[in-house]
Design a protein around this nucleic acid. Structure first.
Lengths: 333, 333
DNA sequence: CTGAAAGCGCTTACAG
DNA sequence: CTGAAAGCGCTTACAG
């Protein structure tokens, strides 16, 4: 900027004003500065600018997810990007792999880089530590799951109702022995979906069998053997409800490998590529990952733009898509 | 930091030294500062620090992809994150949707935020404009595709060889009429894979039929109707080679919907979820998206850490996974 | 070993 | 309408 001022033969103040489109600068000077900018290939240092500006806005936000390689979270990221771009805001992203200490590390790293806000898929644990960041002026929105021990704007899918709808769908097809297969039980979405499963059973007078409820520590690795165990066991379920996308992939693989894909009914929570092409097609409860991201971003920006009302919890609806696997009847017994 | 100094009763210099683990500070003072930091919940402003530091390093980089919602690119992002984290480096991400002006906008926005380096999946067009950023000290690595009109480190998959292997596999099964279905022909990977397709035909003495070569403007929307048209046409191919993951999903859907999935052979470039569970399983040429990201990040950091050798082009190998669809024989004629 | 002072690239009252 | 000066939060020679 100093160079630009020298080349244009004006003061630093004037260059700054031109760069920031201050209308008070005379056209002639504006021209001179514009030319110098062009010649030197000058680009404003936005972080230095933020340091001095009254608002201190960095126009960057941080996104913390479980694993950005999971298409559910990357669709979410895209939803955020879509609304952030309209405001000239850039997004940092990091994955926690469900480790609370990694989450805190990311919050810290993002904070040190001066992000204006944080959108976080909270790992398990206490999120009270985020109060300090909010007090420091960082806006905060939880997404996919609520934080614990802290009140904040939150965007969720209709997890329990979605699971309820999925399990009720299986019950309507005549099933009574329905297995529940979810990822880690400590994860909010897993426990909410289990809640929906339980309520569906209860509302239809079906007793719960604890043997049919399983959480996997590592969905990608464990869902396959657990599903095999279920369907090949002595008292096998006639239907399986999977509570997560990665679990669904492995569970469906196990059904196909055992050749039971047309005998054991199946409903999954969250959609997966090619689920409709399989035979039978996989009946799923879909959630709107992109919409979750976009909504969270809108909420975050409304706070950043001064909205000061009570914290909001926005719940996006899910919907059931019947494709075949969920409409299989139980074997006549 | 001023506050910390006041509370600890030391100078700003000392606080700065403690925060930066300068060993020259006496243990006692270090304690005092540490206590003050704790009490005030102080966190270093890393961007202000970068502004003044001799190295000027922001410990942030920018990633520019076509669309982060595509699992191929999000796996790539994860690969980058894995190696960046070891160095305490954070990643900004943006999607171009293949628009050159969006790419330039992102480069500009990232540059203004002081990123140390850029990893970019170049959209079509001239990338000479990036020279200015590199002259300004920003490291640059192209990934998935090379940039045009600029020399830089580049990480690619073995696109032509992979396609060659896939198409040769179909030829080995007895096919002569093999359709090529790719995304936009202006995209490097699409044209490289077409090159591999052509070479495979040529090497096996099979004449090329221009009618069997199609590029889709929007893979997700166009691949389905084009595939239908192919296989239901009067002079239909006996095999289809798909050159991209989104194209594969839609092409396979069309094969299933027309009931031809066991009659028309199919090989796709890049893997897709559940491709192995379909019947027949989808034979694919897999590339290592996470590895591409990790390799690009290593290259970027080696530059940032001072490596000054000639630009490198690293090519990651692909491999063919036979799963059934690619092993279908042509109908006896 | 520690502090006072200069300065990174910028913005913003203030004076003219 | 324009410029000189102060200062954002920090680091780093320099002097002691």
């Amino acid at each position: 900027m100093k160079e630009v001022a020298a080349v244009a033969g004006v003061s630093l103040s004037t260059v700054s004003r031109v760069v920031n489109h201050d209308p008070s600068v005379r056209g002639e000077l504006r021209q001179k500065v514009a030319r110098a900018v062009e010649i030197l290939g000058y680009r404003q240092n936005f972080t230095a600018s933020a340091l001095r500006r009254a608002d201190g806005i960095s126009s960057s936000i941080g996104l913390i997810v479980e694993d950005i390689a999971n298409p559910f979270f990357s669709a979410m990221q895209r939803g955020i990007e879509n609304v952030a771009r309209q405001r000239g805001v850039l997004t940092f992203t990091g994955s926690t792999d469900e480790l609370p200490e990694r989450e805190q590390q990311l919050v810290n790293d993002f904070g040190a880089r001066g992000v204006d806000g944080l959108i976080v898929v909270p790992a398990s644990g206490d999120h009270g530590y985020l109060l300090r960041d909010r007090d420091a002026g960082i806006a905060l929105v939880f997404i996919d799951r609520p934080g614990r021990f802290i009140d904040a704007d939150t965007v969720l899918s209709d997890n329990a109702s979605g699971a309820y709808a999925g399990v009720s769908h299986l019950i309507a097809a005549g099933h009574h022995r329905i297995a529940f297969l979810g990822d880690r039980g400590t994860i909010y979405t897993a426990s909410e979906r289990l809640r929906g499963y339980r309520k569906a059973l209860a509302d239809h007078g079906i007793p719960e069998d604890p043997e049919l409820i399983r959480h996997t520590a590592r969905p990608a690795a464990d869902a396959y053997p657990v599903t095999r165990e279920f369907v090949l066991g002595s008292n096998a379920p006639t239907a399986v409800f999977s509570a997560q996308n990665l679990v669904t992939v492995e569970a469906v693989r196990a059904l196909h490998d055992t050749g039971l894909q047309r005998r054991v009914a199946f409903v999954g929570f969250d959609d997966v590529a090619m689920a409709d092409i399989l035979d039978p097609g996989i009946t799923v409860v879909v959630q709107d990952a992109t919409g979750l991201g976009a909504t969270a971003a809108e909420l975050l920006f409304s706070r950043l733009e001064g909205f000061d009302g009570p914290f909001q919890e926005v719940v996006l609806t899910t919907s059931l898509i019947p494709r075949g696997s969920g409409e299989i009847s139980p074997p006549a017994s």
